[in-house]
Amino acid sequence: MGVAIHLQVNGKSCQDEVEPRLLLVHYLREHLGLTGTHVGCETSLCGACTVLVDGRAVKSCSMLAVQADGAEITTIEGLTSTPEANGGLHPVQEGFWEKHGLQCGYCTPGMILSAVELLRENPSPSDAQIRRALAGNLCRCTGYQHIIEAVEYAAKKLRARKR
């Protein structure tokens, strides 16, 4: 009853047979051991499970593993291997650290990946654009201000590199 899937996760090729109803988030966490992607609601409302699927920020609790067949996925664990990271932390990760953009850290991986998607599409977002782009990621600890500053920090750093 398994369905064969073949996908790229953080640059690695993964081939598996999975139950058709298996959620992508459970595939990532339990089959691949990538537990940096968190489950906060299972209903796509909190954004803790956000990953990049073919570059788009997707809530992996509301996508089946079989739907990701053929896709390229980046989870929080894979960010340090992206070209933007330049061998260290990705500038968005660095921004969250520099600007105190997290407290408990549970929403952080999803928040970071949503911000990565935003900055790839819009390298100079305004405060309002950042807030809108992160509206699908809930944080109960920080009050968001420091998260906005973290994304601004990363945007600035990424822009400086391109120059």
Binding site: R29, E30, L34, T35, G36, T37, H38, V39, T75, I76, E77, L79, T80, L89, Q93, E94, F96, W97, E98, H100, L102, G105, Y106, T108, P109, I112
Partner: peptide, 21 residues
Amino acid sequence: IKRKEDPRLVQGIAHYVDDLT
């Protein structure tokens, strides 16, 4: 001072209960 906790948290390599098997 920026937090000592953060490097593991921003990289998704910290462990919450559900991450344990």
